[in-house]
């Protein structure tokens, strides 16, 4: 319980420092860039709940993200709603899709699940492209208000979106950290290690895998829900962008998959790197860099940055 309080305080401090840094640099671009980085923190953390803790690879992060984004577009046309509500709904939609897909494929070997997630992205993209209500292949405009009232203060809307994503990121990490130290986390780890032995020890593996898929998918949908307001114009190719699929795998793999800090470090590092590279070089080149880093890391440092640090610390303890 004490570690919990400590963590929440640490998270709040981190948030204030991050937010404060943005206040010092009086420039809206910083908010835009910061939003993207935080969005990757959420995606990477969400991916890691299924991928890192349970060992099931999801290649369809973009699909879950886009589901969240498109449920916002659909609802936006129906009736304007506050963003937290949209996030909740986006999370539920993606979570339910995750649960359904898990139910269909999780009884099979892990490789089949991975392939099915690849399939899901394309099926959903085809559905969206052919669904005129949300703009079809042409895309849809979502008008972003200029300002927002919070607690009597009037703030820039992009600042508001940034704060929302910051809250979501802290929430995601808190959830991941809580899972790690719970019965659930132990159960997830047995699935990753050996499913037969897990069952023999009484672990209900299918149920735990479904929980992980639902949580992971739901968080990705939550990350996607505010996206239409951020981007202003949503088209299938941007919502289902390759960057989401590759980054949400590469960030945890590079940061380290066994601990909540891994995806956080990976996302902050790679996310910032990409923000810089997009401005200075080109967005295609920075995706290439991410792909190369991913391959290099899985071959040379399979435990990621967190693993490298832990190994070094252990080596120092045992001379």
């Amino acid at each position: 319980m004490r570690s919990w309080t400590f963590f929440l305080i640490a998270a709040a401090v981190g948030a204030v420092v991050f937010f404060g840094a943005h206040l010092v640099v009086q420039n809206d671009y910083v908010y835009f860039a910061g939003y993207t980085v935080l969005q990757f923190v959420v995606l990477a953390t969400a991916w890691n709940i299924l991928g890192g803790y349970c060992g099931y690879v999801n290649f369809g992060s973009a699909a879950f993200f886009a589901l969240g984004a498109y449920s916002t577009v659909a609802l936006h046309k129906l009736a304007p709603m506050p963003i937290p509500v949209l996030i909740l709904i986006g999370g539920i939609v993606s979570g339910v899709v995750g649960l359904g897909m898990g139910y269909l494929t999780l009884r099979l070997r892990g490789a089949f699940f991975a392939i099915a997630t690849l399939a899901l992205a394309v099926v959903l993209q085809t559905l969206i492209v052919n669904w005129d209500y949300v703009g079809g292949s042409r895309g849809a405009y979502v008008i972003r208000p200029a300002t927002m009232q919070i607690l009597g203060f009037t703030i820039n809307y992009i600042t508001y979106l940034f704060l929302v994503m910051l809250t979501l990121a802290v929430l995601a990490i808190t959830a991941a950290r809580a899972i790690e130290r719970s019965r659930l986390g132990f159960g997830f780890a047995t699935i990753r290690d050996d499913e037969l032995a897990a069952e023999a020890s009484g672990v209900p593996t299918l149920r735990l895998k479904l929980i992980a898929t639902t949580l992971s998918g739901g968080l990705m949908g939550m990350a996607g829900a505010p996206f239409p307001y951020y981007i202003g114009f949503l088209e299938p190719s941007s919502a289902f962008g390759l960057a989401y699929a590759v980054n949400s795998i590469a960030m945890p793999m590079i940061g380290g998959t066994t601990m909540w800090a891994g995806p956080l470090i990976g996302a902050l590092l790679l996310g910032t790197l990409q923000q810089i590279a997009t401005v200075t070089i080109s967005s295609a080149v920075n995706l290439l860099i991410v792909g190369l880093l991913l391959v290099v890391f899985v071959i040379i440092a399979p435990k990621g940055i967190v693993g490298l640090v832990q190994d070094r610390r252990r080596a120092r303890q045992k001379p």
């Binding site: 780890a189 990753r192 037969l196 032995a197 897990a198 066994t258």
Partner: peptide, 13 residues
């Protein structure tokens, strides 16, 4: 309860 012919410990624990 059973033990496995080839031991299957949880390797990460």
């Amino acid at each position: 309860a059973r033990s496995f012919q080839l031991p299957r410990p949880f390797a990460s624990m």
